[in-house]
């Protein structure tokens, strides 16, 4: 059964059709890539699936349950972690606090615990902290846990986002251009981390990416989005050979 299934999703901004009849199926453990020229609507698809916008038409099912129209925090809580294209970090918070925050839906000590510091609270907070540090180790920035997030180099900030997204216990991990603006070195590291996450945790990943080389190497299947419509879907080899994709996408963009 598909972990994430999107059926006939269409969305209008005002009168403008941003996404039309979009379909998607992600099986457990699969990495799906979403490519397309600038302005094709890739991030809009992400925002629709994560609940930031409510789709005008269509259905979204996560693990068999309908999540269409739920608030973003509900969708995230059901197991959909994401990163953002332009970093969305909390500027006054430490790295560790970022990852802890993403456990919000899991804490259950309630307001009593928050105000009066019950034993349950300290137990849960300690558990969350332990897990957060683990996740930070996993993405290779365990030593930066107590730093302020603004002091970090760009590559490390990206990893904070990644650790944060992992903390929601995602069934599917959404990565919105995880390597944008990275140096070649950081790029290789990031690819290794993604691969490692996929292997160790068996995560399903939905990836928007501009660098075709990376998409071709990582993904099992690739969708090509142009003007809000999927014009081609298939294995990396199929996509690479598809004349429509080459015309709409490769013909205009330089391939690295």
């Amino acid at each position: 059964m598909a972990l994430l299934r999107v059926e006939h999703m269409t969305h209008y901004f005002g009168g403008l059709r941003a996404v039309s009849d979009y379909n998607l199926e992600i099986a457990p453990g699969q990495i799906i890539g979403l490519i397309g020229p600038n302005g094709a609507g890739k991030t809009t698809v992400f925002n629709l699936l994560t609940g930031i916008h409510r789709p005008s038409e269509g259905r979204i099912l996560l693990d068999g349950e309908e999540i269409t129209g739920l608030a973003p925090h509900h969708i995230a809580g059901r197991g959909l972690g994401r990163t953002f294209q332009n970093l969305c970090l909390w500027r006054h918070m430490s790295v560790l606090d970022h990852v802890r925050m993403a456990h919000y839906a899991k804490i259950s000590y309630g307001l009593m615990g928050a105000f009066f510091g019950t034993a349950k609270r300290y137990r849960q907070e300690a558990e969350i902290e332990r897990r957060s540090r683990e996740l930070l180790e996993l993405v290779g920035i365990g030593h930066l846990a107590d730093q302020g997030v603004l002091n970090l180099p760009y590559g490390a900030q990206r990893r904070v986002e990644l650790a944060r997204a992992l903390a929601v216990d995602p069934k599917v991990l959404f990565l919105d251009e995880p390597t944008v603006g990275m140096t070649p070195e950081e790029l290789v590291q990031m690819m290794n981390i993604i691969r490692q996450l996929h292997e160790q945790l068996g995560l399903a990943i939905f990836l928007i990416e501009h660098r075709l080389k990376m998409v071709m190497e990582l993904c099992h299947r690739i969708q090509t989005l142009v003007f809000g419509e999927v014009i081609a879907e298939g294995t990396p080899a199929e996509i690479q050979g598809n004349p429509q994709v080459i015309e709409a996408y490769l013909g205009k963009e330089t391939v690295e």
């Binding site: 925090h73 995230a76 606090d97 925050m101 903390a167």
Partner: peptide, 29 residues
């Protein structure tokens, strides 16, 4: 002080610094 140092309280900082990201990280803003 108990409140603002708990994850519930830190959620306020997250809401302040980037509400969208807080929402996406399961915070009921």
């Amino acid at each position: 002080n108990n409140f603002v140092t708990s994850t519930y309280g830190k959620a306020l900082n997250a809401v302040r610094d980037d509400e969208l990201a807080a929402e996406a990280m399961t915070v009921n803003t």
